[in-house]
Design a protein around this nucleic acid. Structure first.
Lengths: 233, 233
DNA sequence: GAGAATAAATGACAATCATCAGGGTCTTGT
DNA sequence: ACAAGACCCTGATGATTGTCATTTATTCTC
């Protein structure tokens, strides 16, 4: 164990449904939560387990993924500092249909089910916040369905790079992706084989859209990538 | 206009979040709702429009779909008698990211935004009901992502037939799908071209999994279809 | 119920993508 | 720092699937 963070002074709380809580409830959450460090590639929770609460990312980045029928990992999305994961399985009262895995060393707080349910029952604002979160997740996931089903690998790889930029940001040089993902994990975003990702990245390199250096990727021409990705609306 | 149904005696209400309402609120909803008939292929709402409430399917079947970057319709899912659609865009306070279209002549009631929001604010049980609905929608949509991305056309067409069976049921003969969908619409479920669906259905016919008669499809061997579909968990 | 419009079906072909194999390079953990 | 392992990259090949064209069958509309 390490020093447990305090929720009342935690800036991550302010971007979650916990912002709606009164000071007394914040204190209770702070006392009842369990904070834990996860190293890269360790599970916060796994498909098939029973939910024990919601997880608030205090610091770091995680991936939400699901193993496909072919045994390959599909990355549904990412969450980072200030995001909450695990609503949907907890609310469905079923085992996790997804896994949550740290992609960087991360500090994550578990807020136990009872506390969560009591608060959404007693606090309409927090309930509304959760509903809005779920609603935007539904919308996002639906859009992803159409993108993954109706776009070429080339389009989807370009989009994956933009998703990674959104999720991890870029270095101080302004172009190097702060992403620890392997080519195989990028393939998990795109929904394809690692070789196809590598090949497409090589094309992008020829087209001067990106540069690469081992695992790290520099985005040289973001407008070009947006164009290749063929983003809608 | 035609005779407006009454919510208090409507059995569809009992399968929705409106089941949580007290009699007085049911009465209010019943007075404020707008019921309307939609013929096949007419829009209940369309991508880009502003939500005006939630829609409760009193009788009939609708599809929830989205136009892909290639201009093809992708069918996200179906809703039928006793289902409610339109939560996510209303809660996100954005324009619809999907369209809702009648696939049969259907009677659908619009419950205005104000009534919906007032009730979820004042009724924690109804709020919880909506959260659970959204949660299971998130789970379903995520599973769909993986299925669509990692399965072959053959697997996905088999699955589409099972989805249609679930959504529309079968005739009194026990095998004929009660589905009004064209091959192109089935292609919209599968995420492929109509020709590929037709070809795969021909294969299934050779394999004695189905029989066809114009648009109508008989499921001869459901266990076989389940096997081909390669359903997980 | 007849004609027009729409949809189903099939063939041929091209393009995309997955798979397998192999060599080189980078990362990681001690 | 070093060694072992993991990962990146490329080539060759075959299977799957999308596209275009055409014929036949079915549905819809008046």
């Amino acid at each position: 164990m390490f020093k447990q963070p305090e929720c009342d002074t935690c800036s991550s709380r302010l971007s979650t449904c916990l912002i709606e809580l009164a000071p007394l409830q914040v204190l209770e959450v702070s006392q009842e939560k369990h904070s834990q460090l996860y190293t890269r590639n360790s599970y916060i929770f796994a498909e098939g387990q029973y939910p024990r609460g919601i997880y608030c990312i205090h610091k770091g980045h995680v991936k939400i993924s699901k193993i496909g029928p072919d045994g390959r990992e599909h990355i549904i999305n990412f969450a980072g500092t200030g995001d909450v994961v695990g609503y949907s399985s907890l609310l469905s009262a079923e085992t996790y249909s997804i896994s949550c895995i740290a992609v960087q060393d991360s500090s994550v707080c578990l807020i136990p089910s009872e506390i969560f349910f009591r608060n959404i029952r007693e606090n309409p604002l927090m309930a509304l916040h959760v509903m809005q979160h779920l609603a935007s997740e539904v919308r996002h996931t639906r859009r992803r369905i159409v993108e993954l089903t109706h776009k070429s690998i080339r389009e989807r790889v370009a989009e994956a790079l933009l998703i990674m930029k959104e999720a991890f940001g870029v270095d101080s040089d302004g172009i190097t992706l702060r992403s620890p993902l392997t080519r195989e994990e990028i393939a998990g975003i795109v929904g394809t084989a690692p070789e196809s990702v590598i090949r497409t990245l090589s094309e992008f390199r020829s087209d001067k859209l990106i540069a690469t250096n081992g695992r790290s990727i520099q985005l040289l021409n973001i407008r070009g990538l947006v164009h290749v990705a063929n983003i809608q609306s």
